[in-house]
Design a protein around this nucleic acid. Structure first.
Lengths: 245, 245
DNA sequence: TTTATGTATTATGTATGACATATTTAAATG
DNA sequence: CATTTAAATATGTCATACATAATACATAAA
């Protein structure tokens, strides 16, 4: 086709025209305003009508831009009262997005690996912040795990590892990992179900992990965790190889 | 005041009434629809007018709900063409939010720690996926670091560690850490500036890290990284103690 | 017949005006 | 002065209209 040839050669000479919608422009102007005025969490945002007049666009556009900022948690609007700037929640919206069905296999893989990475890297924080109650709680959880590890239940996994993250006393990190649970569940259901005979020889159980926490150090704990997660590491590394080849 | 007393004691007995706005309801209905219909990335979303009629609300409300979903990257709308479901970007919006000024000290602390955690936990992926070119690139970066570590430049830090993350070949992880850079920068500028005399005795430089990658294993690398990040670990642990006490 | 141009349709983007509702403020009343 | 009433306020919702650009189709030129 001559058309595609033409555009093909032209593309290097002429840059495509990008048109920012009014809403786009309003959004960036709002962000600029907040930065310029150095507004902090709790400060009031100008009224919609004031913004309309100041920027010379309809309330429709202003509201759409505001809706975006509300969606990312930067603004909170109280009905009939006004809007204030909020301390944004970095993980906002994530729970709506983490649905295995709409995420690509690659992204799922990425997130699954991130969980593995966190699980390994968290050791220093754990040993820096652990308190007696943490270990007591973990032991209590162990007792509820009937027929583990012969029977692998997602519920055990979530409760146990969730409690470990709590030790690190990093709220954002904890919430992040809890959001990753559906992905872990998905990968598990998808064929990772551990039959008893597939458990590695020196498989590290939750009980052994607790022991490593109780009387170990970051290095020992990590070694235990590495073996606890071995099948997952092996699998993700194998899969990624398949994808990139 | 008797009023505040009353609400105080009643709050435990009576749950507050929560009213979901029309937009809220439309949003969840849309998400339900997508899930129910098992829509995937690329599939078409019903037209605005169809949605209006189906749900019996005005286009305004429909559009506001759609705007939310566009904001989190679940939907993409092509002007005058229609809307499609998109593979959502899990990190969307994050770049707008990561501005030290609007984040609380605690969240900044959380994110800073997450970076430390990732840096430690990434070792397994690195050694599973490293290729010759990676090491060559790292060595090339080393040569550009003039007067390091005597002079600490954020730029060095970003380039070097960014390249390390690339080795793991996890796109989401890589983008995530690059978004954390402003926070690292902020914390650094805020008083973490390493004067030469403050460098720990056996400080691990970037060069030593490369060596650990080149002829080591995950454990050795982590040991090196731990010492490389020691001042940061020490500081964040000290600070968190102050906050919680 | 093929190609390029003009045209109608379509769906989102934007504007305008109105009303509902709950909060706050101010006024009025006892 | 305290309490109640009324008014002003700001967001949430509705309805309608038009602008604009992508697509498909029709049409004229080669």
């Amino acid at each position: 086709m001559s058309k595609s040839e033409t555009t093909g050669s032209l593309r290097n000479k002429i840059a495509p025209i990008i048109s920012y919608s009014l809403t786009d422009q309003v959004e960036t102007r709002l962000l600029d305003l907040f930065k310029k005025e150095d507004l902090r969490s709790g400060d009031a945002v100008p009224k919609e009508n004031e913004l309309c007049e100041a920027m010379g666009v309809s309330r429709t556009v202003i509201r759409e831009a505001l809706t975006r900022l509300k969606t990312i948690g930067l603004i909170e609007s109280k009905k009939n009262k006004g809007m204030i700037l909020k301390e944004p929640d970095l993980l906002i919206g994530l729970d709506k997005l983490i649905q295995p069905k709409i995420l690509s296999e690659e992204t799922l893989q990425d997130m699954f690996e991130m969980r593995l990475v966190l699980e390994m890297g968290i050791a220093e924080l754990i040993f820096a912040r652990i308190q007696p109650k943490d270990i007591a709680d973990l032991k209590a959880i162990l007792k509820t795990e009937k027929n583990y590890p012969a029977v692998f239940e997602m519920d055990f996994e979530a409760k146990f590892h969730g409690r470990i993250y709590e030790i690190a006393r990093n709220n954002t990190l904890m919430r992040f990992q809890s959001m990753l649970l559906p992905i872990f569940q998905y990968v598990h259901d998808k064929g990772m179900k551990l039959k008893q005979e597939e458990l590695p020889k020196n498989y590290v159980t939750h009980a052994l992990l607790v022991k490593a926490i109780e009387s170990g150090n970051p290095e020992k704990y990590r070694d235990a965790m590495k073996r606890h997660l071995k099948v997952h590491f092996d699998r993700t590394i194998k899969i990624r190889k398949l994808i990139t080849d």
